[in-house]
Design a protein around this nucleic acid. Structure first.
Length: 352
DNA sequence: CATCCACCGGAAATGTTGGGAC
DNA sequence: GTCCCAACATTTCCGGTGGATG
């Protein structure tokens, strides 16, 4: 093995915080204003936009150097996907104590309510759709009625209009402002990647065309960073465009692995089932076929299989993470079903 | 017009776990 | 320790859906 061209791996990680941010001045300004204005009562900011546009990234970086609130709590809802689990995270942040299971939701709510009265609290619910999917907006309704100075940030990739997903009473008492993160342009993606490459790699170790290829193919920065890192790790001396093309599938796999990490092995198997079936057929996949393939994989890996109903929910999780595209058919020659594809923009469909 | 298809998704049922009251 | 309760993950059940088929 030849020596690595990576001098400093950190800038190729998704959680890397650069000394200077590019292109998101307005969005950062909005976030900063919202997070540092200790207004009284509950104020809500709804942040949405495609995956890999920096929503979480900018939020977390500002949460760190914005210690304005007495209590601040970041909840990634794909890990904490019920009201109860999210409340436990909040309880931990408020009391500094480890919450135990077995309490009643109402008891957790009461403690949180009492301990936060007239305090400044910051709560971020990332990947909000996961919690809405399980428990509806009960948690949001509870938060909206807290008698405290709460700054609530709601983040979602797949929801564009929050009003469509909340009860009216919740929506109207939250009165959310909206902040949209637009997709990066290919040029912007190029500049950001070039900056990361400069900070991470040996000088002169990547061809301009290699970066152009990545940034013009996919504008999801999270994916692009996986791609760049994978190519750099595979490079003998210089990252060429050819090498980038060759490493795309491997990069896609590490990207998927990162996204699925907080979820279960069944999500993994299900994703694998979709990928395998697509390689085989290259045409629309129906839920039933995917379930059959999933069952086969369970047999191969000697894993106990879950029910159709459960897997249907897990498929929705993959949709939320944009690891599959789905068209819903209500009627038509196949009756009521979903037509599933791998994400067109990320998945090129070479050897797997 | 009845029935089938192939699934969606709400709701009830099941078994497990842990806290709290006695 | 025993009993009760709530939350959770998951299964089981079932009422839609709307074109195709007979």
């Amino acid at each position: 093995m030849t020596r690595s061209i990576i001098e400093n791996p950190a800038p190729l990680q998704s959680n890397y915080v650069p000394s200077e941010f590019l292109y998101r001045d307005e969005e950062r300004e909005t976030l900063h204003t919202f997070m540092s204005s200790g207004s009284s009562g509950v104020q809500t900011l709804f942040v949405h936009g495609p995956r890999g546009t920096g929503k979480t990234h900018h939020l977390l970086s500002q949460l760190e150097d914005c210690p304005g609130s007495a209590v601040s709590c970041y909840v990634p809802c794909h890990r904490f996907d019920t009201q109860y689990k999210a409340l436990k995270q909040l309880y931990r942040a408020v009391t500094q104590e480890e919450p135990a299971d077995g309490h009643h939701t109402a008891a957790l709510q009461r403690t949180i309510e009492n301990r936060t009265r007239a305090t400044e609290v910051m709560v971020v619910l990332d990947e909000l759709e996961f919690i809405l999917h399980n428990d509806g907006d009960d948690l949001l309704y509870f938060l909206s009625r807290l008698d405290t100075d709460l700054s609530l940030v709601l983040v979602s990739t797949t929801i564009d209009d929050l009003g469509d997903h909340l009860e009216e009473r919740t929506f109207s008492s939250l009165q959310p402002e909206t902040l949209t993160f637009e997709q990066y342009t290919a040029e912007q993606a190029y500049t950001i990647l070039a900056e990361r490459a400069r900070a991470a790699l040996e000088p002169q170790s990547i061809h301009r065309q290699a970066l152009t290829h990545i940034s013009s193919t996919v504008q999801n920065l999270l994916f692009d960073l996986h791609w760049l890192r994978t190519a750099a790790e595979a490079a003998g001396g210089v990252v060429t465009e050819n090498l980038v093309v060759e490493t795309r599938e491997r990069a896609y796999r590490t990207y998927v692995t990162e996204l699925l990490d907080p979820l279960s092995e069944h999500h993994d198997l299900l994703h694998q089932a979709v990928t395998e079936l697509w390689m085989e057929r290259e045409e629309r996949l129906l839920t039933g076929d995917i379930y059959d393939q999933y069952q086969d994989l369970c047999t191969v890996y000697e894993t106990e299989m879950l029910s159709h109903r459960r897997i249907s929910d897990f498929l929705t999780h993959l949709e939320y993470l944009e690891l599959v595209d789905a068209d819903y058919h209500y009627g038509g020659d196949q009756g009521k079903t979903r037509e599933i594809r791998p994400p067109e923009n990320l998945f090129s469909g070479q050897e797997m």
